[in-house]
């Protein structure tokens, strides 16, 4: 295997890992925003936000890692996907802006407090929805269909991206609920706990809908999943997903605080893997492969050296900062 064959594979996994980290880590922070309207009052909402205040920034950085990594390793895919999805990407960025500043501004505000509580919630919902739309449009193969000529602005619009958009809002809501079970106690925790099961039902329903509509897409995502013997090799994935879903269903109503969150993360990661397995080896379905889109070994190799050294270090100090802020967050506990 030459370098030019091997490096794109390595990079496919690194970028996949970065995006998964983003989905899992910012997923639960966005989930907090999605669930904010269910809080009893302002103070409970503040408590929910405080569970994420010290770590949201690092979580969001995985998105930048995914973007910059894509530009470095697969510049053609980067240059193809982003213009084709101009509107959903814009919506995502604007939503992330308001969600992000809400952490700081809400704390400084007095009369305008409610505005930033609202910005936190609406920003989170819109960001989650936009990410789902982007995901759906990529799975559908929109960027390649839109082609090289001038992109029409709403090419990405269709029932499937709308479906994945709504699905992700519920999915992040589930992650958020289990995170709050882990990090809060008392009334806030019981609110989160009571939301977990309805959210799970919605997520499973949407997963079913998404899976059912995959065969009707132009992209060849399904051929891999439903051809023999692939079906056999891939079968552990859906089976594991179902098992984890069942465990999660049971655990949210027990008194275990950490287990639902861990199971929700695994549940999400398995779903993500299923998607990646369907896309492989295409970066932009149906036909732009990772080798078509790859930057030359001089670029992929250069960044790989840095990634091999830095990403473990990053994971190490990320773990450290989570450790510093471990345990339940209490009412009124500290902003700087």
């Amino acid at each position: 295997m030459t370098l030019a064959t091997a490096l794109p594979i390595v990079w496919f996994f690194i970028i996949g890992f970065a995006i998964m980290m983003y989905v899992l880590l910012d997923g639960f922070v966005l989930g907090i925003g999605i669930l904010a309207p269910f809080a009893d009052d302002e103070r409970q909402q503040e408590l929910m936000m405080n569970t994420a205040a010290p770590i949201w920034d690092g979580n969001e950085t995985w998105l930048v890692m995914g973007g910059a990594g894509l530009m470095a390793a697969f510049p053609k895919a980067y240059a193809l996907i982003l213009p084709a999805l101009y509107v959903p990407v814009l919506a995502l960025l604007i939503a992330l802006i308001f969600r992000g500043v809400a952490f700081e501004f809400r704390f400084r505000a007095e009369r305008s407090r409610r505005i930033w509580g609202l910005a936190f919630c609406v920003g989170s919902v819109v960001a989650a929805f936009a990410q789902g739309v982007i995901l759906g449009a990529i799975v559908e193969g929109t960027p390649l269909k839109a082609g090289q000529a001038v992109h029409r602005t709403f090419d990405w619009y269709g029932p499937f991206p709308m479906l994945t958009g709504v699905a992700l809002v519920f999915g992040y809501g589930l992650l958020g609920a289990t995170w709050l079970v882990l990090k809060t106690e008392g009334r806030a925790q019981s609110v989160a706990r009571s939301l977990a099961r309805p959210l799970m039902l919605a997520v499973i329903a949407f997963m079913g809908l998404v899976s059912a509509s995959l065969p009707f897409l132009d992209s060849r995502l399904m051929t891999r999943w439903f051809s023999w013997p692939n079906m056999l090799y891939l079968s552990p994935l859906p089976i594991a997903t179902l098992v984890v879903a069942a465990l999660l269903w049971r655990s949210v109503m027990t008194s275990r605080d950490a287990r639902p969150f861990v199971l929700a993360l695994v549940f999400f990661a398995l779903g993500f893997l299923g998607l990646v397995a369907g896309m492989w080896p295409n970066l932009v379905p149906p036909s732009l492969s990772i080798w078509d889109a790859a930057s030359p070994p001089s670029s992929q190799g250069f960044v790989l050296v840095g990634a091999a050294i830095m990403l473990p270090v990053v994971l190490l100090y990320t773990a450290y900062s989570y450790r510093v802020f471990r345990g339940k967050v209490r009412a009124g506990e500290g902003y700087h």
Partner: peptide
């Protein structure tokens, strides 16, 4: 992109994560 992408990636890996992770400890720790 073959040049700019790697430089920006190094920025994320060596700087952005460092700032963002320790910012939490600095502000709330």
């Amino acid at each position: 992109g073959n040049v700019l992408g790697p430089l920006l990636s190094y920025e994320v890996m060596t700087a952005f994560f460092l700032e963002a992770s320790f910012l939490g400890v600095m502000l709330f720790g």
